[in-house]
Design a protein around this nucleic acid. Sequence first.
DNA 1: CTCTCATATGAGAAACGATACCAATTAGGG
DNA 2: CCCTAATTGGTATCGTTTCTCATATGAGAG
Lengths: 134, 134
Amino acid sequence: MKEKRQTIQKGLIWEAVSEADNHPNAEQIYDMIVSKHPSISRATVYRNLNMLVDEGQVKRVRVLGGPDHFDRTLGKHYHIQCTHCKQVSDIELLEDVILSSDNIATHGYKVESYELVFNGICPDCQKKYAANTQ
Amino acid sequence: MKEKRQTIQKGLIWEAVSEADNHPNAEQIYDMIVSKHPSISRATVYRNLNMLVDEGQVKRVRVLGGPDHFDRTLGKHYHIQCTHCKQVSDIELLEDVILSSDNIATHGYKVESYELVFNGICPDCQKKYAANTQ
DNA sequence: CTCTCATATGAGAAACGATACCAATTAGGG
DNA sequence: CCCTAATTGGTATCGTTTCTCATATGAGAG
C-alpha cells in the first residue's frame, strides 16, 4: 500500500512555515523556497500546505478578504491582522472567550465552531503614521 | 453640485437586499434582479452594494473563504454560516462577548475591531443528513 | 540494485469573487 | 429642454486558489 510520500518539496514547505515567525501566506512561502529550489511550482506549495493542514502539522489562519496565512504554532490562540501592511500576528486573550452553547440563540443551527479575527495597526505601521502623515 | 444620483438599478438592489430574508450574496442579488431588469450588469450590483454599505444602508457580512453576503438588519449581531449549503443566518449572543482592551495581549498592536463568525449546520441540512447518510 | 507504478510535481489553464476600465447612457440641476 | 458629471453595461483584469495532465519520482517488491 503506497501512500503519502515524503518529497523534498513538502519538506521545504514545512521548513519554511516552521522557520517563519510572521505567519506567511502561500505566496510568501513560495518566495522563501524558490531561491533554494527554483523549479518549485505554486501549485505544489498550495497542495502541500493543504496536506500539512489536514495532517495537523500547520495551522491555517483565515483572514477576511485576503489570502490564507499559515502558522507553525498549533495551540489555540487568536490572530490580529494589520489593516495597513496585512501582516498577521498572534494575539492572546488573557481571559478566554467562552461561547457556551447556552449563550447562543442558534435558531436551530448546530454550532460547530467559530472564528475570531482581530484587526488593528501593527507597531511598525503606527510608527510610520506618526512620522509622516501617510 | 451634482452627486449621488438615485438610479433605478440602485433602487432595485436596495429592494432586493431588503426583501431577502436569507442574507444573499452579490450573485444571488444579481439573480433576483435580472428577471425584472435583464440588462443589469454584475459590475453595477457590486458597485451599488459597496455604495449602500458605505452609506450605512446595508451591512456587509464577511465570511471566511467565500463571497460577501449582505444584510438588511443594521443593528449589532453576529452570523453563522452553514458549512454545507453556505447559507448565512443571524445568531444572537444572549450575553454579549466583551473584549475589553485590557483582556488582550496585543503585542504592541492598536486593536481596531474584531469579527466573530460562527460555523455550523442549518436546520435544513441537519434534516437532509438525518434522512440519507450524505 | 533495479523495476514498477501509484503518488507527487511543474506548468499552465481555469474557477471564482471582485475591481478597473471605458465608451455610452442618464439623472437631475440650471 | 440642455448640459454634464455621475452611473451604467460590457469586458478585461486582478488576486487567490484549484484543476488538469503529461512527466518525474519515492519507496516497496523482487
